[in-house]
Design a protein around this nucleic acid. Structure first.
Lengths: 198, 198
DNA sequence: CTTAGACCTGAATCGGGTCTCATGTTTGTG
DNA sequence: CACAAACATGAGACCCGATTCAGGTCTAAG
């Protein structure tokens, strides 16, 4: 599998998108190659021209979702000036992404057994950028001092469960404003945001 | 399946324990009835004398773990007097349970597709008791005011991811003390605990 | 218009899983 | 001790899925 022509690239992309769709809908185990290729509109055998196994396409889907969600969060949070603001913008982007791509959740929860290495990679990529930002804010005295790693994982946990409860279980609607407002207060407390004004 | 004799009860229990073990180790899909019955030391057919399907035994294992972890948390947190204290004792119990029964995590993450109803029941039972306690503490002015439900889910999220990172991924060891101490500070901030002393 | 190379196909192979059932074994009671 | 009710068994019926492969089809360059 090396150089693909435009046609090959197109087919590969169709398969990747179909895989994301089917994995999200049915879960890893009930998603069969037949269903994926059917949904992509290609023959069964075609799958193996582009991916070496079901697990491999799974990993690729996870990593793809990972880089997309991080991109969305980074882009949003860069618009903020204080750490609180940045944090809330990041959460907002995360929830929006979740509502649009429930696959993120549904697929990642499966990774525990399907592909633990990829699960770890996913979470570590999410935290590592996070930790840097939090440490800077700590050094600047913008938020409470402490171990930024524990804080980063705590914040991810909040996002994960609140997103599950109010987005996934709400039919992938946007989150009610009241919930987000409450959450905003909680997050500001959690990071221990300080007023910097002297 | 109605009245079981002592012998029947014993066999059923052996199967339930074996199922928990095997599900935790292999995940739902790779856990086969053959493996469960082998691990329990009974014949394959015996399984169906006590459970009607693989999914049913899964649900039973989840609900059993759920009631055990809640019991452990409640018992621990009742020893505390302030809400902060209670909260930290509850978290401690949760982490201890996780270290001793990694099945809790590994199994529940699978439930998303295997048995979504049971997943929801699990989380809702965990929060519902939580919400009551938090509301009382809010009314007593012990912690920051707000929607106790959002706060309950946030706290669960923290426990879930921090437990995953520092217990599951650490070979099911107890959590490093430094991490727990840091976490304690984070939790106290998150609930917005107030000094009550006038 | 030819043709090499890229691309596509789905039937067939192979492995494995759930659940049933006809047949035995154990236990407690009269 | 006899025997009904409970309990236990594992072979096999039945189903389904990942992956392979031998044989087409498409496309772009000459």
């Amino acid at each position: 599998m090396k150089q693909l022509t435009a046609r090959g690239e197109r087919t590969r992309q169709k398969l990747l998108e179909a895989a994301e769709r089917i994995f999200a809908e049915l879960g890893y185990h009930d998603a069969s190659i037949v269903k994926i290729t059917e949904s992509a509109g290609v023959g069964q055998g075609t799958f193996y021209l582009y991916f070496s196994s079901k697990k491999q396409v799974f990993d690729e889907v996870v990593l793809d979702l990972n880089s997309r969600v991080r991109h969305a969060m980074t882009e949003a949070s860069e618009k903020g000036t204080t750490r609180s603001e940045r944090e809330l913008l990041g959460f907002g982007a995360f929830f929006r992404f979740t509502a649009e791509h429930p696959a993120l959740y549904r697929i990642i929860r499966q990774a525990e057994f399907v592909s633990p290495e990829t699960l770890i990679t996913h979470y570590e990529r999410l935290t590592s950028g996070y930790v840097t930002g939090l440490r800077q804010a700590m050094d600047a005295g913008e938020i409470a001092d402490g171990d930024p790693e524990v804080l980063a994982w705590s914040l991810m946990g909040i996002g994960e469960l609140v997103g599950m409860r109010w987005i996934l279980w709400n039919g992938e609607q946007a989150m009610p404003e009241a919930v987000f407002d409450e959450l905003a207060r909680i997050i500001v407390r959690t990071i221990g945001a300080q007023d910097i004004d002297p």
